[in-house]
């Protein structure tokens, strides 16, 4: 029994980090926005890790799932605001819609692109993201290139005061909760058969196949899970927080790149990795922007190169090896 519980110990440092971020944000004046940004990075890192980290496939079109998740929230609020008495349910419907839409897109993309490997998969997925954006803009779906501005409808549902509270506080708390969910799902995967299957296909897909692993099935499970989680993150962090969306902003490939950096920096395929990666990335980006505005990217690039060279398995990957055989072993995976 105790060993069953001990399997979940690795969640402790992850949840502790989220709790600390939350408490600092609540109690230190002016820190909420920074903490919200860090948690957002943690959440997208956690979600992307389930796919990139566990399967080893690099999806350069990952931001498409964030984009379509944001649409889920936007469509729910902008279409359902007139129905009386729906209240908070609008947000729940938006969240479910975000999961379903990003999940559906991932099935469509995965069915085609997951037949490809390595660089070919990466290239195909960039195409998907750009193509999807141009489809929305060109075919004038969901407001086309003008996007959806739903702050008016949002205020109509909740009233000015509550609406502002949801946007400035609750949206970020929802992101923390999704990040917690992401960590839990990751650990469940790691402990279960699916974790072994993903490890095997990441290390050697052909060997995995002849050992009886239906690699396509497991890749698609990881892809859908990862996509719907990040769709949910974006529904809260972009949809609910900003109450507007523009396609060229939410399909911006730089978010995909940030996700990749976070996962690799922290340690691909580890549980604590995305948190460590998000904190290192988020904090350095924040400080560099303050200290040397305009130069942050110039300085940031070499820093990332140094870290990646020094810790090829990511910060947590190295840490994991260091703590092997000590009491900390149970907590860091």
């Amino acid at each position: 029994m105790s060993s069953k519980i001990a399997r979940y110990y690795p969640l402790i440092p992850v949840y502790a980090a989220y709790l600390i971020l939350f408490l600092i944000g609540r109690n230190v004046t002016g820190m909420w926005q920074l903490m919200a940004m860090l948690v957002f990075y943690c959440a997208i890192g956690q979600a992307f890790n389930i796919f990139l980290g566990m399967t080893g496939y690099v999806d350069f079109g990952y931001v498409a799932f964030m984009g379509i998740g944001t649409y889920g929230m936007a469509l729910s609020i902008s279409h359902l605001y007139q129905i009386e008495g729906l209240g908070m349910w609008v947000i729940l419907i938006g969240a479910v819609l975000a999961i379903l839409m990003s999940g559906a897109l991932s099935v469509a993309v995965g069915a085609v692109a997951l037949r490809l490997r390595g660089a070919y998969f990466a290239i195909a997925t960039i195409g998907v993201n750009e193509g999807f954006r141009f489809l929305i803009e060109g075919a004038k779906i969901w407001g086309g290139s003008e996007g959806i501005i739903f702050s008016g409808q949002f205020t109509h549902i909740f009233g000015r005061k509550t609406a502002s509270l949801i946007s400035t506080t609750w949206a970020d708390i929802f992101v923390i909760l999704v990040a917690c969910l992401g960590a839990f799902v990751t650990l469940r995967f790691m402990l279960g058969k699916i974790g072994y299957a993903l490890m095997a296909l990441r290390e050697d897909e052909d060997a995995a196949k002849v050992m009886g692993i239906n690699v396509t099935k497991y890749k698609i499970i990881a892809f859908i899970t990862s996509a719907s989680l990040v769709g949910l993150v974006a529904a809260f962090a972009w949809g609910l927080k900003l109450t507007y969306l523009f396609p060229d902003e939410i399909f911006d490939i730089s978010y995909t790149v940030e996700c990749i950096i976070i996962v690799l920096l922290g340690g691909a395929g580890t549980l604590l990795g995305p948190v460590a990666g998000a904190l290192i990335y988020g904090l350095s980006k924040y400080w560099l922007t303050i200290i040397l505005p305009g130069f942050q990217l110039l300085i940031f690039a070499p820093i990332i190169i140094v870290i990646v060279v020094a810790f090829p398995e990511g910060v947590v990957g190295v840490l994991k090896r260091r703590v092997r055989g000590t009491v900390l072993e149970k907590f860091i995976v």
Partner: peptide
């Protein structure tokens, strides 16, 4: 081998 996994995990697969 599934290089990063332990011998035990490899065989368990």
């Amino acid at each position: 081998p599934f290089a990063s996994a332990t011998v035990r995990e490899n065989i368990a697969v």
